[in-house]
Design a protein around this nucleic acid. Sequence first.
DNA 1: TACTCACAG
DNA 2: GGCTGTGAGTA
Length: 622
Amino acid sequence: MLRIVASGCVNPSTKVVSFNLNVFGIDCRFGNDVTTMPLNIKPADQSRFTYKNLRDLNDNNKAYKSPLAVICHVDVNAFFAQYEQNRLNLSHDDPVVCLQWNSIIAVSYAARKYGINRMDTLESAKRKCPHLVVAHTAVFKRGDPTWKYVNYRPSPVNHKVSLDPYRRESRKMMRIFQSFCDLVEKASVDESFMDFGRLVFKRLMLLFPELVKGMERTSDRLPQVPLEGFSDLDWQGIVILCDEDEEEKEGPVISDWDDVVDLIGSNLAYELRQMLIKELNYTTSAGVGRVKTLAKLASGYNKPDLQTIVRSRAIPDFLKRFSIKDFWSLGGKIGDLVLSRLSSGTVEEDEDQIGYIRDHYSLKDLISRFDHDRELAQRVYDIVRGQLYAALSSRIDIKSMASNKNFRGPSVNCSKDLLPWLDVFVGDLVLRLQDLDEETDTVRRPTKFALGMTCGRVTKLKQCTMTPIKDYAEFTKRLKQLSVKLLGELESTRKGNADFSSVYPCIQASLTISGFISLEGFANIDELMKKQSTEGRSEGSKPVFHPRKRRNLGIATLLTQGKVKSAEGAADDYICSECRKRILKSNMDEHKDYHVALKLDQDLNSQNQKHQEYHGQSQLPF
DNA sequence: TACTCACAG
DNA sequence: GGCTGTGAGTA
């Protein structure tokens, strides 16, 4: 048994936790009564890495493939519950649950101490903790396209849940991530991956300037890890150890540069998490490792408010503790299939399922066992070795967006019953699209639109194409029109002789927008209007989708911190008279359109203000 | 285009 | 366990 001091952002003070795992915890330097252990540096005779491996870290497109890659996964603890806790000005110690109708969808860690989990009903949770704070999600009222937090217990008959507040908050977090790191993949509303490559590279160059000298000798090995020069660097978080007594006594071994980049990565992750606490008051868990799969497993390994570091050398030991089903995309039937084809059937080997798979199957074996699904075979092969070097993808490629509701009882029996919900769906979609536009600096519009309805076991779907409309109010109008049109078509779809009763009573309905294009292809609003007036049903002559040019946020990184670069390209700049922002000449037209659109958008903006009303709310709904 | 299934919270 | 999204496959 190893006694360690657990790090934490919120409650870092003096809490001593015991772990019976081979991990190494480092205090976060909040307490001044803690003595930190010196780094355990034992340089290998020769580095396994080349200058190219190191240099690739500094390249957005190559870093993830480097054996020195540093990928971080950050996960907000019980996100919805923490959001509600902050919204209601409560502390991390108040037991909070987030409610959706009668079921609990998030439990704060303070509430978990009472044994409450997501399976509980509201009643059973209250029995476990009478002073539990219960916050229902925001809701749309039937017929109202704006969501609100209400001071009563909403009923599913007249309301639809809105997850918009969480998405907005998620966007704020993304901004923080992006201000810190130049390559961020949003994995879900409360999870992101980050490629720390450039940040690590810069810190390495500052700490060990001699590395710069060899940088051109790409295929040469890196020099030995030096004994000095680490400044006052220390591990942050919980470091997974190898099966060596030595590491437990002397700390995690640093013998090659992969250990050094992890050391730096642990500090970066910690700094980032502190930012999140400071700016938005969220506790998070983070994981740092070579690849996304490791980072993700690591972030879930120590919770809440803790981070876990998986050095390359610790990968086999770390993966022992997981099942193949713990990996993303293998949690369901595919994972079951993989297991059924590969399991040993013996008890001992099941304890190290991943190790067994690694040691008993060649890639060829896997391919034949997976019916020649080479892709799956390769994925499993890499996953069990912790070497699935996958690139981070940006959220630009979202394919569709849907707003959906399941109706309780026979409450939707005719068009008139459904129409108010269509308003809700449209409001939901437009708001979210607007959010996405702001987030990604694009004007994105769908070319496809679909209405789905379920009656009994039968789901019917009607789809149509649409021409992009830039202005949000106009776009909203159009969606409403089209949804009504589609409703008419769905109602009159008949199988044989059946009449429109085939869609009623409706137990589920949804609107989906998809086929997104960027309107940046249009030079100005006039051209767009012209395009609209010639709207046809055909799919031809679409404006080209230009993926957003990523903002160059690397400027906020270590080497340039505090410095503002303004000299470059000043000749091509122009200052907008409306907003005083510096705009590239080539973007002037687009920017003017932006202001036109802004004015047209006043309606929606006033709606947004309504959404702010809940802030500062002190009284609990119930 | 219409529909189904799988997956992740 | 209900609800809410997403993406991929198929005919």
